[in-house]
Simulated assay, not measured.
Amino acid sequence: MDSNVMRRKKIVKYNEGKLLEIEDYIAVEEPFTIHINGQEFATMLCTPTNLQELAIGFLASEGVIRTVEEICSVTIDQGKGYAYIELENQASFDPTVTSKRIIGSCCGKSRQFYFQNDVKVAKTIINAPKITGKQCGELMEKMESNSAHFKQTGGLHNGGLATVNELLYSYSDIGRHNALDKLYGHCLLNRISTKNKVIVFSGRISSEVLLKVSKMGIGIILAKSAPTTLAIALAEELGITTVGFIRGDRFNIYSRHERIIEDK
């Protein structure tokens, strides 16, 4: 059992009129603070795993960096929950642009900071693969079958990168945004192309989630839950196909439906 992902705790369970004391698995939530060039930048609440990927993916999605080549060094202090990052061009990072922010595990980040940086890094997707309805259901099933920690805790989100045929990588976190940042960080660190790839996602497609997918340059997101109205509007504008409520061979297509084709 990975104690950074889940821990045992005694709880009381109500079942058929009786109260029973049992042990259950609980998802871990801890603060993670990123320092850039000696300045405290942001503290997020997360599952404390894959912290290097999380830090780099977060900075890329915020427009602080575009490539890992802009980073001189990354030091992770797992015990304290700190990341110390040195950027190559220190003048490019201005800590006075935004004050210290606390980023929640569920509700995203401060809207004030959020919209300041999106224009710089959001991408309009021109080319994306076509995928059959059957493939959509199969990819969601593969991600869920690989999510042992979710099955044990019920408290984690999952984000996966896939081709139309195969789930390539997946990351888990208590925050749906964090799961995508870990995935993005993994791609940047390992020079993995996101061209013609698909995002498979366990959570709701909010505007923040949609924009993260755009910044990764991916044109299709397959989700277990629903999108919001703003997410759909942004998806139409940015050329992203959004598929929600995937349950076996059933789902809804909310934008750019031409990329989802009938099974042959």
Rank of each mutant, 00 (worst) to 15 (best):
R7F: 08
I11K: 12
N15V: 00
G17I: 04
L20Q: 13
E21P: 04
E21V: 08
Y25I: 03
V28F: 06
V28Y: 02
E30F: 01
T33L: 03
I34H: 05
H35Q: 11
G38S: 11
E40W: 04
T43Y: 05
T47A: 11
T47I: 06
P48K: 09
T49P: 10
L51C: 06
L54V: 06
A55N: 11
I56Q: 07
G57L: 07
L59K: 05
T67E: 15
I71V: 15
S73A: 15
V74Q: 10
Q78M: 10
G79Y: 06
G79W: 01
K80W: 03
L87T: 10
L87N: 12
T96Y: 08
G104Q: 09
C106S: 14
C106A: 13
C107A: 13
G108R: 07
Q116Y: 03
N117E: 12
D118G: 08
V121Y: 11
I125H: 01
K130C: 10
E138S: 15
E141R: 14
M143D: 11
S147D: 11
Q152D: 15
L156Y: 06
H157C: 07
G160P: 07
L168T: 04
S170C: 05
G175F: 03
R176P: 03
N178K: 00
N178M: 01
N178G: 03
N190T: 00
I192H: 06
I192G: 09
S193Q: 10
K195F: 00
I205L: 09
V209W: 00
K212I: 06
V213T: 14
V213E: 04
I218V: 15
I221K: 00
S225R: 03
P227R: 02
T229C: 01
A231D: 04
A233L: 06
E237A: 11
I240V: 13
T242Q: 08
T242A: 08
G244T: 03
R247T: 13
D249M: 08
E258S: 14
